[in-house]
């Protein structure tokens, strides 16, 4: 594998929420890297800290959450403690974000042309005509036909899939280095999902940017990502190249996630599920957070928390008893 440049490095990120009921460690000591032109998947159940990780990167954590410690290195500098003003120069320009629900992520009172233009006005110095051309070019790039006319349409005149294309066009508008997509296809029809995912993959490759794809859907990850971080209760429990995660996973949680994907080719009577629910974030179990739900748990799992270990070829997992044979 060729040596690639890191565009983003997250080191020991801790984003905690100090609520009245106690401290929620939504992101707890998470470290990962993102390389140029790479698609990194972050996968896990709801409440696992995936979205908060994404929001932490662009420093959009609302009260009562704060980034306790950790470094987020982007273009050689730590962006965790940048002022709002400096952060605003990075948001949208260098790092942009795609949200889950295209129905609400476009402002209903403006035409999409206007919304596309806004970001160009904010981050690029183009003339009015250049901006218009760029808008048309962007809409064409995301596969919207009749772009000149569509610029004058309002969001409600688009279908969900089309809106998400517009959202992607906005995210791409100023050639960002990183796009963070938070469940970008969850709100869409399955048939549209595949189209949008392929489009995103193509555009990410063409524009030389890196994508952080946050999703609960391992099938999406399998199709899209180069590398995967599996998150559980605010921690990365396993990370590695996608094929390793899918076919040679180490952590019982990853195994559970993969087991619960419905397949049409296999004749299973019932889907395998992970027993139990995500623990209460106010009262996390001692030791391994997954132990109470784990099929392979041993007494030690309740006592000590496993450190994340390297199993070779960038494949890491935090488990005392990895499920792949011979991995210990």
């Amino acid at each position: 594998m060729e040596e690639r440049n890191k565009v983003l490095e997250v080191k020991n990120l801790k984003t905690w929420f100090h609520t009245f009921k106690g401290v929620v460690k939504a992101v707890d000591d998470v470290s990962f890297e993102l390389y140029e032109k790479e698609i990194l998947g972050i996968v896990g159940e709801s409440g696992g800290g995936k979205s908060i990780t994404g929001f932490s990167i662009i420093n959009m954590i609302d009260e009562p959450g704060i980034i306790e410690t950790g470094e987020i290195l982007f273009e050689g500098r730590n962006i965790v403690r940048l002022s709002e003003g400096e952060m605003n120069k990075i948001r949208g320009k260098k790092i942009s974000m795609i949200f889950q629900d295209p129905m609400t992520s476009l402002n209903p009172v403006y035409t999409i042309g206007k919304q596309l233009e806004e970001i160009l006005i904010l981050h690029e110095s183009l003339s009015k005509k250049e901006r218009r051309n760029r808008c048309i070019e962007l809409l064409k790039a995301v596969g919207i036909s009749n772009a000149e006319k569509r610029l004058k349409n309002y969001p409600h005149e688009f279908s969900g899939g089309m809106r998400q294309r517009v959202v992607i066009a906005i995210a791409l508008a100023s050639n960002p280095k990183i796009i963070i997509a938070d469940e970008p296809t969850t709100a869409l029809d399955v048939t549209i999902q595949a189209q949008i995912l392929r489009l995103m993959k193509k555009l990410v490759r063409e524009n030389n940017c890196a994508l952080i794809l946050i999703t609960h859907d391992l099938a999406v990850i399998a199709e899209m990502a180069d590398r995967v971080n599996v998150m559980y209760c605010g921690k990365i429990v396993e990370s590695g190249y996608t094929r390793d995660i899918i076919f040679h996973h180490l952590h019982p949680y990853t195994q559970g996630l993969i087991g619960s994907i419905p397949g049409t080719d296999t004749e299973k009577k019932r889907l395998t599920t992970i027993e139990g629910v995500v623990p209460n974030m106010f009262d996390l179990p001692k030791g391994c957070k997954f132990a109470p739900r784990c099929a392979y748990r041993q007494p030690v799992c309740f006592e000590e928390e496993p450190e994340i270990r390297d199993f070779g070829d960038n494949h890491r997992a935090a488990c005392f008893f990895p499920v792949r044979e011979g991995a210990v």
């Binding site: 662009i58 959009m60 605003n88 120069k89 990075i90 948001r91 949208g92 320009k93 942009s96 974000m97 949200f99 609400t104 992520s105 476009l106 402002n107 209903p108 806004e118 970001i119 904010l122 981050h123 959202v167 906005i170």
Partner: peptide, 9 residues
Amino acid sequence: YVDAAKVIG
């Protein structure tokens, strides 16, 4: 869209 506007900068 308000979050999106923040994200845009």
